[in-house]
Amino acid sequence: MGQQPSTPKITAQDRAIFQLKQQRDKLKQYQTKLTSVIERQNQLAKQAITKKDPERAKFFLRSKRQQETTISRTYEQLDNLEKLIGTIEFKSIEKDVIYGLQQGNEVLKKLNSEMSMDKIDKVLDDLEDERVKVDEVSDMLGMGSLTNGDEQEVDEELERLELEVNGKKTANEPTKVNLPDVPVDVPDSLELPEVPVSVKLPEVPTGIPAEDPSQRKEEHEPIAA
């Protein structure tokens, strides 16, 4: 028996939902039945009319009407049942969610209680103490950490290595110059000022003005030293 997988349990809720669903199925079947009855009555009414029996036809139609109202009432009940089923299912899911939240909360609480401030302080203090001890021992053994000079040497070596690996290239590479982009769209027609068609130039003087020789001479005359 131990080999067999455990079968899922049927809870009281399951039973309740099951019963509601069975009621719902019955209602649905009842509706199907009523629909077929209505169809038959419709046919019977038609037959009665062809047989010229309006009273009978009326009777069938009346009873058909009755069934139709019953159907619409069953729809209301069906709706109620579906709602109830839905509510129960949703509530049971809510219950599960709350249970899950509770569990999560407890775990979180447990974890938090294991991480009290004092404890963490103590652990960190202990850690620091141990580290100091390690330093002491290595100092005593002359294996202290690197001195400033050592650090400098390391830096220099790093620089050298960087030069070796990619330094030369980077040194020779011209720095990029930012040039403005070439304008992409050139206006089709440059707007240039119109060429004036008729230019009014001052008239060329016809008569030569009389020169003032005295003035001209003065210009060319060397300045007396």
Partner: peptide, 24 residues
């Protein structure tokens, strides 16, 4: 499915027929 442990059968009200099933 019941044998595989995936389902549980619910009997209908009269107890003769299987009315429903819960499959997990």
């Amino acid at each position: 499915l019941v044998k595989q442990g995936k389902a549980q059968i619910l009997m209908s009200e009269d107890g003769h027929e299987i009315g429903g099933v819960k499959i997990v």
